[in-house]
Design a protein around this nucleic acid. Sequence first.
DNA 1: CCTTGTGAAGGGGTTCACAGCA
DNA 2: TGCTGTGAACCCCTTCACAAGG
Lengths: 214, 214
Amino acid sequence: MPSKPTDITDDVPEVVVLRLPQYVRALGELFRQKVVVVSSQQLGIQLQMTPAQIRKDLSYFGRFGKQGRGYPVGYLLGELRQVLGLERKWNSCLVGVGRLGRAIINYPGFTPEGFNVVAAFDTAPSEIGETIGSLVVQPIVELERTIKEQDIRIGIVAVPATKAQEVIDQLVRCGVKAILNYAPTGPQVPEGVRVRNVDPILALQSMTYYLKSD
Amino acid sequence: MPSKPTDITDDVPEVVVLRLPQYVRALGELFRQKVVVVSSQQLGIQLQMTPAQIRKDLSYFGRFGKQGRGYPVGYLLGELRQVLGLERKWNSCLVGVGRLGRAIINYPGFTPEGFNVVAAFDTAPSEIGETIGSLVVQPIVELERTIKEQDIRIGIVAVPATKAQEVIDQLVRCGVKAILNYAPTGPQVPEGVRVRNVDPILALQSMTYYLKSD
DNA sequence: CCTTGTGAAGGGGTTCACAGCA
DNA sequence: TGCTGTGAACCCCTTCACAAGG
């Protein structure tokens, strides 16, 4: 028995998982620049982290380095992509096709990273049936069926704050365990469901605290 | 001498400052719902935090509560807005008027929160002089003068990853101490400059780690 | 000499638990 | 009784420092 069902997170601290994508991105850049080996020191400068932290983070997942040399860029990149599950494609659905939702559908940055928005939903009857990008806007009623049919694991929420909790509840009920939330709310979700909030207002408000003092 | 110049952060942990805007938002909602008093317990449920954490966080800034009752919503809201510097307006400038930059200019969510985008810049000569929303796109050369003239304290970066560091260096040189970065890079900035990255790709990539396991 | 991997030490934030007070 | 404010305990992440190895 390799692991209990409760073993959702292995034993890797969540902060470490949050940093992993940054390593992947930095290594990707180095790889494109044909850099073959990189030390934790060098990576640390690039990412503004301590070398010790990088080594400790990586050591949760294996021994990727060579003493005296550093880490083989290509190998480490591949391993980390594996760890993060980036070697496969992930289907997502968007809920809310207002101004923001449209921008998200037309954003060309997701696909090259392996994230495909394969369905769009809205509650407003006026929007249903409309074509945005290559997607036909579906009514929320179709959510469950589409999620099942298209193996959608990620929900992207771009509805007004007032509707966000409700929409997220529906996504969760359909089995979605990862939500990218663009609505200005901190939604409540059950254990085992991950939410990442994209919230420029909160980001700005936490900076003005420091701006005040000069 | 009340404080040394190094006293940028008082002594409030940065994580606490990051949570403050969430309290402000939650209290704003309660206020609109005419709720007069709220306990750390109730707030904790709403924000999915422990009551102890909320009380400790708030205690960094004053004694806002009443024993046996809780916190007066309106009063606490006002105090926290004061602490965060949200009682004034903040001018910002946008650099990069591509697809994303345009969406940001036309985003109606900043202004009601006191954040005004009052200038737009781009490096591409073809964009210069164009009008987007109510802004005329300026060449980067104008950055310093405009920042001074319009008392701009916040830079919003929406340029390609390859240009981001360069643009941020320029903003920093012009005295900007707060940067909202939409480019997919973790830029390097000197001490005393704050950056908040808006990066949906990193957000998604840190969730797939958990999705993998089911 | 250089850099990894890692136990151990250290530090900082969270939670506890209770005094204080309405 | 109910809830705040807070020192102290706790816990977890970060950093240190060094053995191991190229």
